[in-house]
Design a protein around this nucleic acid. Structure first.
Lengths: 163, 163
DNA sequence: TGTTTTCCTACAAGTTAAATAGGTTATTGT
DNA sequence: ACAATAACCTATTTAACTTGTAGGAAAACA
């Protein structure tokens, strides 16, 4: 309430807090990746309660539940109900690329909509001078996320290994 | 109004139109780039009325006015008022990289906030296993946008050159 | 003096991210 | 049997932002 008033005053003077959101990976994708890394760091086949992950990663349990639903439905993680239940990876850590996880949770990693399906193509496509810029950008993004696996992340962070 | 009702019904059933916005360049950045390319394609020193650019690019004049204000204040374009007035590039087309234009209009091209300034760093940084993924991603993005100039775009689109 | 064009400020609607909330179902240990 | 645990399901909320629209003022030229 107080915040709203302050925000409105700032807006009146065109002073925004300017938290830039463009070209950003959302919390959904970032949390999904941290969640998967967390699972990958446990013993293979061990059930991990989401509550523990939430505590370790300092992410709201309820929010994590929503995120892991997508991963479960995609067959990326397996779930067991009841006490001693929890989640575990369906495959080895080197099976999962960052791209797989981000695309599933973010929806798409194309920097512009016209590169998404075949149906978002605009009628200016033929004369679009900037299209090749976006194509190059998309390729660069794909090259990164499709060539890093959960195993790579764990290996890389071996120094800072927690627990 | 009709749309709102339909939207609410869809929302009730958790059916969203799911226009994914993540990792997207906004219209502001895209239009700014098209605007600059358009200016770069004119004769050097020639004043181009924004009205013409708006017509050619099929973008709202009023919206373009807001966008070019930023480019003008940054010294990227020069303006002349009155009839026969308009805008022109302050430098040669090979002076401007895509990165310069996008960073100015989008604000930042970092895929996560913690890579932005020095002040957005979170307290989990030391133990963040995924940080190096974002760093690689940012480097890949920068490598693309900082190595394409307006001159490159024009040269590349020479085939589809319009007018 | 009228027209053209930049320049300035305000505002609004739709949409989304980022959770919060509360409950139901399945499984296991006691 | 039953209590505890943990996954699963559905709805709701709120601030914030994108993507414009709108109306006019100031400057320059014919």
């Amino acid at each position: 309430m107080t915040y709203t008033i302050v925000y409105d005053i700032l807006k009146t003077y065109n002073i925004y807090m300017n938290r830039v959101v463009n070209l950003k990976i959302s919390t959904k994708g970032r949390y999904a990746l941290r969640l998967m890394v967390d699972l990958a760091q446990r013993k293979p086949g061990e059930n991990v309660a989401l509550k523990e992950v939430a505590a370790r990663q300092e992410i709201s349990l309820k929010y994590l539940e929503q995120i892991i639903t997508v991963l479960t439905k995609a067959g990326y993680v397996l779930s067991t109900r009841g006490s001693n239940g929890g989640y575990r990876l369906a495959h080895e850590p080197d099976y999962y690329t960052v791209g797989m996880i981000l695309r599933l949770t973010e929806g798409s990693l194309a920097p512009v909509a016209c590169l998404e399906g075949d149906e978002n193509t605009c009628d200016r496509r033929e004369q679009c001078a900037t299209l090749f810029v976006w194509e190059k950008l998309q390729k660069a993004i794909d090259d990164v996320v499709d060539n890093i696996t959960l195993a790579d992340i764990i290996a890389n962070s071996a120094d800072n290994y927690v627990i």
